[in-house]
Each structure stands twice: as structure tokens, then as C-alpha cells.
Design a protein around this nucleic acid. Sequence first.
DNA 1: CGACGGCATGTAATCGATTGCATTACCAGC
DNA 2: GCTGGTAATGCAATCGATTACATGCCGTCG
Lengths: 336, 336
Amino acid sequence: MSTATVSRALSQPQRVSENTRARVSKAVDVTGYTMNQAARSLRQRVARTVLVALPDIRNPFFSSILDAVEREAARRGYGILVANLYFGHETVWRLQDLLLSNRADGLLLLDGSVNPNHLRLLTDGPVSIPVVLACEEVPHLNYHKVLTDNAVSAERATRHLIDLGHLDIGHIMGPEHNSAAQDRLTGFTRALSAAHLPVNPNWLFRGNFEMESGFAAAARFMALEHRPTAIFAANDESAIGLLSGLRQHGLACPQDISVVGFDDLEVAPHYWPPLTTIRQPRETLGRMAAETLIDLIEGEHRATTPLRIVLSSELIVRGSTARLSSALSSAVQSAI
Amino acid sequence: MSTATVSRALSQPQRVSENTRARVSKAVDVTGYTMNQAARSLRQRVARTVLVALPDIRNPFFSSILDAVEREAARRGYGILVANLYFGHETVWRLQDLLLSNRADGLLLLDGSVNPNHLRLLTDGPVSIPVVLACEEVPHLNYHKVLTDNAVSAERATRHLIDLGHLDIGHIMGPEHNSAAQDRLTGFTRALSAAHLPVNPNWLFRGNFEMESGFAAAARFMALEHRPTAIFAANDESAIGLLSGLRQHGLACPQDISVVGFDDLEVAPHYWPPLTTIRQPRETLGRMAAETLIDLIEGEHRATTPLRIVLSSELIVRGSTARLSSALSSAVQSAI
DNA sequence: CGACGGCATGTAATCGATTGCATTACCAGC
DNA sequence: GCTGGTAATGCAATCGATTACATGCCGTCG
């Protein structure tokens, strides 16, 4: 039997006779044969691997998306190669190398902080590499995207604070060049405007999505002469850092201050106080992003206009937010 | 110029003349050439990729190790392929496939729950695959290992509780077939024995390293007639779940109960109360594991007896443990 | 009966980089 | 000027699976 027949028996069983198929699969069992992937990749010019680039793999938010991506990829016979970009501080060159050298067939980018021009080299170069953006957008790039509606969700979270009677509301922002952070800020200001509340620039704290930045914001918060009674944090980690910092300064949540987070980390319901937050459909997001990318690699959406899949998220009300007690409302105080 | 010369210019620059080297690197710049990794892998029979198999990538403990591994691997020109084993529930077959099909050159196994016999097929088969175990041991396997001393650390953590005057100490265990969990249990009982304290089987709560299992343990804890005054949890996640559950039942930490965790997750210092815990050198562990594996792949430690690198960890005392107030000591109570 | 279509299989080229061996070029020493 | 040695380069085989094309076989239909 020729190698060609064996190859066909394994990859296109319907192309060979019943008999041959049986003989081949028996031989495979006996010898423990496994196909050499390098040879196949070389010939087919395809790696059956996707490159996942994320801002910070240690962050459980991203790693649980990665988990979903891995599962979906495995289901479709793909492996995943992981690259950590450290919030865009790592360059895209390394990615380019991995992609052009035929180690990966496409890029799933979870980091909105990368340089759009560098990224464009990947898709607009001599060979156009399939790219899907997930979680975060990269400005001015018209790629396939799978996102949650950050602005709407942020607006929702902020309105929740307003509904509880809060009039003085601050925000812990994410990293400056991060689209998700920008969208959440947009939603935040939109909610305030809709309620005819001013946006006080002193109450916008720059953060970077990490716990320490929330913790640091607490010190700046305490230094304020006039403090907000509620804070919308751009993610759960900053919310937790903030709460930890405020507690050190003797402020109690939710009695003295209400805090809303974003992401619904695993720890959110078990934190004290349990965190009111926005739950993103992480599993779905990862799965759909992987699906979209693999479809793209296999030539599905090539011709169509870029997809933009927006998933909706959910406000989970827990213990870190409470109705404003009138004694604390500075607005009320000043009205008296 | 022949392709052979170009190949040599790129991979063994000292083998070609100054002049050729310059011409090649110029041409590379101009054309944006990147080597086809599949072709190289095929010829050299090497993938320059390591497979990292871990129990749960969503767990920040593992993902931060993964981060360190990725960094070290990248430094040495290797990519990483990630496989999630879900605490050994996924079989080793998929790994075997990846390894034998030349997609990865070696296995870094962070999961001690896999079936040792299946694993042995990888190393004792016709082709022996380099394997390094990290974090967790697999029983009866004499491979290279990079570990923290779980037993000693657990003993240390437990002794801390004893030193605070606690006499009734419980333990939230990890998954049954997990070596790290077993070692931590061993350390726990060793510390009790050394202090001539009995190990009360009612105070050993089976967990699985996840938050929910700690939370569930809280209910069983509350149902006890005679309750311990301190708990050593096999990891921070179970500690946090436990604390969350106990709080729901009205118990305050550390006034009513002291809790020690293990791992020093990022959230540990920001939890309430801040968690007393064991800090493992995660970065170092990941880096050394990757180093060892890549050395092994490149033929370094092949002949030598398996390395066993044990890293020491550190007790971090924070707010979740306190001296036993005599009013609460059941031992004291019964003595009255 | 002969032609033709469809199926199963074999033959050989192909993917792109590496590498053993052969060849050429160049230099030093006699 | 010739020889021996070394350095630089070229030639061609090689890795293992895939696949275009060719071949052979069988059954059907005009």
C-alpha cells in the first residue's frame, strides 16, 4: 500500500475502500503511528494553531476567556499559542514573527492597547493574516470583533448608583489607551449626563485595571476635600483595591461609600462586601471569538464585511452598593 | 547565492563571510523574509515549542506560573502550547498526540492528578519525551521536578496557629489525588503531632482548591457541635470561600476564628480580613521549570539522575489570624 | 463489442529549510 | 610554482505528508 493511500485513509476516509480503511486503522493501532504535524503544515501551508495575544494572562478575567478559547479551538482541532503583551507594552513584532513563520494561522487579539499601525502590517502586508479582536477594540481598525457592550454596561452600572440616590459619583478609570476603559468612561459620563449630574474631573481616578491602582486611588480619594458617595470602578480588581484602601482609612462600604465593579470575577461574590458588578459572558465571548477566527482561517467570512458581535452583560447587585443615607449626601447637606 | 548559504547565514552566522552575512541580512530586511518554521521542524525534527499542561488555567496561581514559563521560553526562542487538564479529568491522550506529532518537544506538567501509568507511556515508549513536573508531584515517577516544599510550608502555617494559642485546628483539604494537597495535609498533621495535639477527623474538610468548596465547607463547619477555633486551608481560594461562608453565618474573622491560606494570591492582601498565607515563589518556580525542561530538550540533563529542585516559601502574617482569646477556647472552656 | 465514466490506488512532485559532501578560492610555506 | 590546508560556498538529498495526475479496474450503456 502506498503512502498516498494511507494519507487518504486518514484524512479523507470516504475516498478509500472499506477494506483499506480497516487495514490502515489496524496498522495505526499496532504501530502507534501519529502524523507528523510539521510535514503536514509544510505541505498544506497551515499550522492548525491560533495565536492568542492578551494583555495579562495572570488576570483571571483573561485567563478564563483563554480557557474558553482553548476549548473551542481544541474542539475544532486547533492548538493555541499564547503571547502575553503586558497591556500593549510588548511589541507586535514577536507576534508577526510567529504568524509569518507559519507557526500560527491567525491572531486572536484581546489587547486593545497595541499600536494600530503595527497591527495593520499584519493584515495589509503581502500576506493577509486573519485577525479577530475580542474584548477590546483597536481604534480605526475595521476587523472582525467580538465584544461586550462596555459603554452600555458602564452606563447601566452608573445608573444603578444614581437610582440608589447617589449624586456625587466618581470613577476609577482603566489604562489610558485602552478601548474598553474608554468605553466604560463614556458610559459613565453618559449616565451622569442623562441624570443631569455633572462630571467632576477630580473624581476621575486614573488606574490601570490592576488592584494596586485601585489601592492607590483610595489615598487620592481620601485627600479630597469634597468626596463622592459612590464610585464606579472600571473593573473588579480596581474596585477591590479601592475598597481595601478605603477600609484602611476607616471608611466602610456600603455604609460610607458604594462601589460598583466590572467583570464579576470569581472572588466578587465572596469578597466583603460582596461586590456589585457587571457580569460579562466570558465563556461565550471566548468561544465565539475562537469560532469566528477559525471560520475566518478556514475561509468562511473572508469576503463578507467584518463581523461585529456584541454580547450583552448583566448587572449583578450585591452588597457593595446601598441606598444613599441622607446624612451622608453632601448635596443634601448643602441644601440644608 | 544558494539557499544553503542563506540558511547558514541566518542560523550559523560565523560559518559565512562577513560580506555574505551583510548581503543576506539586507535582503531579509528588504523582502521581510521569515523562516518557515514547519519546514525547519520537519528537517530538524524539533518544534521549538513546549507543551504546558495545567489543572486549571483560570486559577491565577497557575496562570502566573504560566506567565513566567512563557517569558523564559520566549527568551530561549521557544513557544508554548497550553493544555488545560481540569485537575486530571482530561486524559493524557491529547497530550501524547501533541507530543508525538512533533508539535511540541517536551511536556511541562503542572498537574499532579494525572494517571501515572498513562504518563509513563510518554517517557518509556519508543521515543522518550522530556517531561518536567512542576508544583505537584506524580507518585512513583522519577522525573525532573521543580517544587515548593508543601509539607514544610503547611507545617509552618499550622505552627503559626498553634503559636497563637489555638488548640482546636481544622483543615480544608485539596482534591484527593493531588500530591500538593496530600503534602499539605501531611504538614498539617505533622505540626499537630509535634505539638501533641490530636487530629480530629471531623475537622478535615474535603475541598478541591476552588472557592466554592471552601464556601461549602463553611456550612459543614457550622453544623459541627464542637468547632475548631482555627483553620488551615490548603489554598487561598478555599480560605476565601470559607471566610465568605462563615461570614454569612455570622462568624467574624479573626475574632471568632483564625484562617491561614496558601499561595498568596494577588487578592490576599486586599481581602477582608487580609489573608495570612504562605507565599510561593511563583515566578521563580515557573522560570526554573521552563529552564529545566528546555535544558532537557536540548540534551543537558539527559544522562544525569533526575533533578529535584525544591524552593522554599514564606509565611506572610496578615489579619486573618489572631491570638486565641481565652473566652473562645473550647479547651479552656472545658477546663473550667 | 467497444467506449466511457467512476472509483480505488499508485507515482512522483511538492512544500522550504537544513546539512553531508563536494567544490572552489585563497593563502602560507617551502 | 607547487602543495597542503582552511574557509566559503554550492549541490543535492532529506525530513513526511499531501495531492495532481496517471493508471488500472469494473460495470454500464449505446
